[in-house]
Design a protein around this nucleic acid. Structure first.
Lengths: 233, 233
DNA sequence: AGAACTTATTGATTTATGTCAATTGCAAAG
DNA sequence: CTTTGCAATTGACATAAATCAATAAGTTCT
């Protein structure tokens, strides 16, 4: 009997199995070992999940809500990606020095499932399919980062704002119309722009009829125009 | 009897064993499988090794020379990192869609050893230590990329030029004095600056006595000043 | 050595983007 | 319903960095 509640969405690891291509490769025994140790923590919007530089002892799955993965620098934060259910995060320091190389924070109220590193590691060792799939996952992350890399270093403001909107629409909310739960500052942090600049471009898009904007409600009216802007940079 | 020559530095995989922490974990059998299939290709300075978007069928080791890994975009190239002997490259598309997500080209005359993907994959599957070490390697790359990411998006010109010089001095040439084999354009591509801007900052450093510059010969006179500039950004 | 190229350097100018400051809008607390 | 505080917006201005154009310095070829 514990006072830590498990989220309704994740009563046991079979839920993750159904939703994550990675865990479905585990056999009963491996799964049970992970399931036995795992625990969940609930975060309020805005709360930090872990901080860059701190010790990293678990692999994490976001089971509800929305979180941001971001790099902290002298001056500002740079949001690398958003995490939605059910996605894994917390990886890079694993198998290395067990430290976090980025920070994570909840954007909406969120639930995170913590999987013991040892169990995870054991699964990698004992299950080659799992190991391959995990490598695939890491590589996919690396490729995603490359994309961000070129986008942020080579495109100018309109292209980057378009990228952010397309990312939110296609990857996160999966709809042309959505109510955004990120602040303007966070949107700017996604694009490595100042919030003022981000707002200005957003206003331009609105005036050009590419989007309809009402506070936090955004509707993309001319998807192809936005894609064009993203491509041109 | 083949007309493809093997490089003197890499007569067989034991050389890589001695030099790469990764391959030393393989047993004789795994090593022999890899050794049997591997082949080497020699590149002249400037030649491309593979191109972003093309099919990726091998893991590669640079056994001699110097190469650049770079992302190609509409407008310019962005050098992600340099590869020197003996380092592995060519990874991200493996275990995924077997395509290259960046380009590679020789900066100096170079030799590349190609390791069949299937053999490599088999080693990952059969040898958990190797798998772990490989994951460690990928994670290290990811972390390196994060560093580049923040450097290029957050620092301004002097900080980025300082980063490039420090990287060349500490990681690549491992000396405070070196003769650079990259063109000014390539140096600019490392920092995501125009070549004119890079040259101007280099000139500033020279005038401030931080470096002595003579064509392609660079001597870092005030290492700590350069580190300071790098940190401040 | 000179011609034809390419690469590096420098200067003048334009442009993109950040910063600072003021105002507005909105939500929580009394 | 007002007050208080914070986020969003807008405008004016400053500055970092790119671009364009001209010259200089090397390279390669003959």
């Amino acid at each position: 009997m514990t006072h830590f509640r498990k989220s309704p969405i994740c009563s046991n690891c079979n839920d993750c199995n159904r939703r994550s291509p990675l865990f479905s490769l585990l056999n009963d025994e491996e799964l049970e070992a992970i399931n036995k140790d795992r625990f969940e923590v609930q975060y309020r919007a805005g709360e930090m999940i872990f901080k860059q530089g701190s010790a990293s002892s678990h692999v994490m799955m976001l089971t509800s809500g929305l979180a941001k993965i971001y790099l902290e620098t002298n001056s500002r934060n740079l949001i690398l990606k958003l995490i939605k259910p059910i996605q894994m995060f917390g990886g890079p320091g694993l198998f290395l020095d067990n430290r976090n190389y980025y920070s994570a924070a909840a954007i909406e109220d969120s639930t995170v499932c913590f999987i013991g590193q040892e169990n995870f590691r054991q699964a990698v060792r004992s299950n080659p399919d799992f190991a391959e799939k995990f490598i695939e996952h890491i590589n996919r992350s690396a490729i995603f980062t490359f994309g961000r890399f070129t986008d942020l270093t080579q495109k100018q403001m309109p292209g980057r704002v378009a990228d952010a909107l397309l990312y939110l629409s296609k990857e996160i909310y999966q709809a042309p119309r959505f109510s955004i739960s990120l602040s303007r500052q966070e949107l700017a942090d996604m694009t490595s722009l100042s919030k003022e600049s981000f707002i200005r471009i957003l206003k331009d898009f609105k005036e050009e009829g590419i989007i309809v904007l009402n506070g936090d409600d955004i509707s993309i009216e001319k998807m192809s125009a936005l894609e064009k802007i993203s491509q041109v940079g």
